[in-house]
Design a protein around this nucleic acid. Sequence first.
DNA 1: AATTATGTTGCGGT
DNA 2: AACCGCAACATAAT
Length: 292
Amino acid sequence: MPELPEVESVRKNLTTVLVGKKISNIQVLRNKSFSEFAEKKDLIEGQSFLAVHRRAKILDLVLSNHQHLLIHLKMTGQLIFVDKMGKRFGGGHPSADWVNDLPSKHTRVILQLIDKSGQKSQLFFNDMRVFGWLKLHSETALVEEFINYGPDVNDPKLNVEYLLSKASRRQISIKQFIMNNQVIAGMGNIYASESLFRAKISPLRSAKSLDKAEMVTLLLEMQTIIAEAINLGGTTFDGHYVGVDGFAGGFQDKLMVYGQKGRPCFRCGINFPIQRIKQGGRSTFYCPHCQS
DNA sequence: AATTATGTTGCGGT
DNA sequence: AACCGCAACATAAT
């Protein structure tokens, strides 16, 4: 259930683990997860990895034939790397049963890999809800895939003037506004609630109602929390998101409103419990006292 | 049994 | 055209 920091953490670890390795074989256990595979098999198998990029919440694995293997984890996708000894990236002791026994019942795709010295390893794509996908794109198709995305939230080019112009005349709530990938790419439900809490702005405000000072604050808090979450390896909630090593991230301990319904507000105290409301079908958590 | 879930897309209505 | 709300996708946990 990754947002940008979780996908970015996966990207970094995949870079370490995949670059230089060759894909010897791919097994698609659930067709929906990689429906193009049958027709594009020959463009993938036998290729090696040049680099691992990310745009928005999509991973972009660049192959030696300059095709792009794109992976979207959606809500419950996981990528777990295991070497030939069954050891996970980063070593250590496996923390969960499902990591001990791969493929699990939620494994949808398995990439069989081989490095230059002939050592074999595997990359497992697990996805309980089967919303996630793998696709193979040419350079042109890649451009097409990203054409409708706004700048990534951690893109230095993202600025207040852009946000204010996008927000002008928008009646939609500020929370739904910052979760719109056409405006900013990468903000999901957790960090949207958390950023608005840090910025002391109510999620119920309309996007156009924010003045410049408020938008400056909100942008700064979004950039800050995304950077902090990346540094801690993302947020693991209900054991769904895990890193390439199968281990949890560290940001869940820093959450101040998400999942905290009824708990006293960390900022203004026991008389003002955190509320949960619905916006655009998604849960929003906030403090009605100190967010206005 | 009903509700909830870290995401996106597509449809229909204003 | 731009904007907005809502169902759909598939599965498991509470």
